[in-house]
Design a protein around this nucleic acid. Structure first.
Length: 266
DNA sequence: TCGATCCTGTAG
DNA sequence: CTACAGGATCGA
């Protein structure tokens, strides 16, 4: 499920449903799903109250009483949500928190790539400090992006997906933002013109905000996974560009697919 | 900085 | 059957 907008949608829903609940039991079905450096045993979550839900990049942070916090990363196929009856959970649930009111907070993850780990608040802060700037925060200004871009020769697409610089952008929205800013995904970040970086700054913000709206709307509706938003380039290999009509190209960057319009993005 | 790797599901 | 998947980490 995850790029910033989808993670944001998950967080918003959890804020309504999970805050105030008390965890009575923590059950790890797949040990791989509960690994994590510096993480404490999940048992420490038992007896604690869910105080607050935050998002940092693509991470979900569930603040608990007692100085602990859960960090959840959905990776490719994870999801975190509340089920009405703790006993009725799917086979894909990897971590299960039974709540005192009979419900459960469950981490579902088909591919077992994501993870849930418990930290002491202090340690978590340290762990998350390596993540880059939040693109929807007021700190993410044009000047900030210009300054960041200057320091990297990474291809623009790889750069956008690298969580150390800007947090929360993944394969789909990186491609979309680059298309809107007319930037070639292979162009080194420090070689992108100032005008295009300005356009990119706005494109990132617009794309993410639109996607959050779409994700919130479609979230909870089954079968809408991947259909939050209409894309100009992502997944459209060979189809006509919405601007110039020439075919969209697919290339590989860092082992991932990149879609773009070679005519519009130079 | 690159490539392999972690896993399973699904589309072609 | 093979190719590919909205992600990140690790070692060489």
């Amino acid at each position: 499920m995850p790029e910033l907008p989808e993670v944001e949608a998950v967080c918003r829903k959890l804020r309504k449903e999970a805050v105030g609940a008390v965890i009575d039991e923590a059950q790890v079905m797949k040990p791989r799903s509960a690994r994590g450096a510096h993480s404490a045993e999940l048992d420490h979550a038992v007896g604690q109250t869910i105080r607050k839900i935050e998002r940092r990049g693509k991470n979900i942070v569930v603040h608990l009483s007692g100085g602990y916090a859960l960090r959840v990363h959905l990776m490719m196929t994870g999801n975190l949500f509340v089920i009405p009856d703790a006993r009725l959970y799917s086979a894909r649930v990897r971590v299960h928190f039974r709540l005192r009111d009979g419900r459960a907070l469950v981490f579902e993850d088909a591919r077992i790539l994501g993870n849930v780990s418990l930290y002491k608040e202090e340690d978590l802060k340290k762990a998350l400090s390596k993540i880059g700037i939040e693109p929807l925060s007021k700190e993410f200004t044009i000047e900030k992006l210009l300054e960041l871009a200057k320091r990297s020769r990474l291809p623009a697409k790889i750069y956008l997906m690298d969580q150390h610089h800007i947090a929360g952008i993944g394969n789909m929205y990186a491609a979309e933002a680059l298309f809107r800013a007319r930037i070639n995904p292979e162009q080194p970040m420090n070689a992108v013109t100032k005008a295009k970086l300005k356009a990119l700054h706005q494109a990132i913000i617009d794309v993410l905000k639109e996607a959050i709206k779409a994700a919130v709307r479609s979230y909870s509706k089954p079968g809408t996974y991947g259909k939050d938003m209409d894309f100009n380039v992502y997944g459209r290999k060979g189809k006509p560009c919405n601007v110039c009509g020439k075919p969209i190209t697919r290339i590989e960057q860092g082992g991932r697919s990149t879609y773009y319009c070679p005519h519009c993005q130079r």
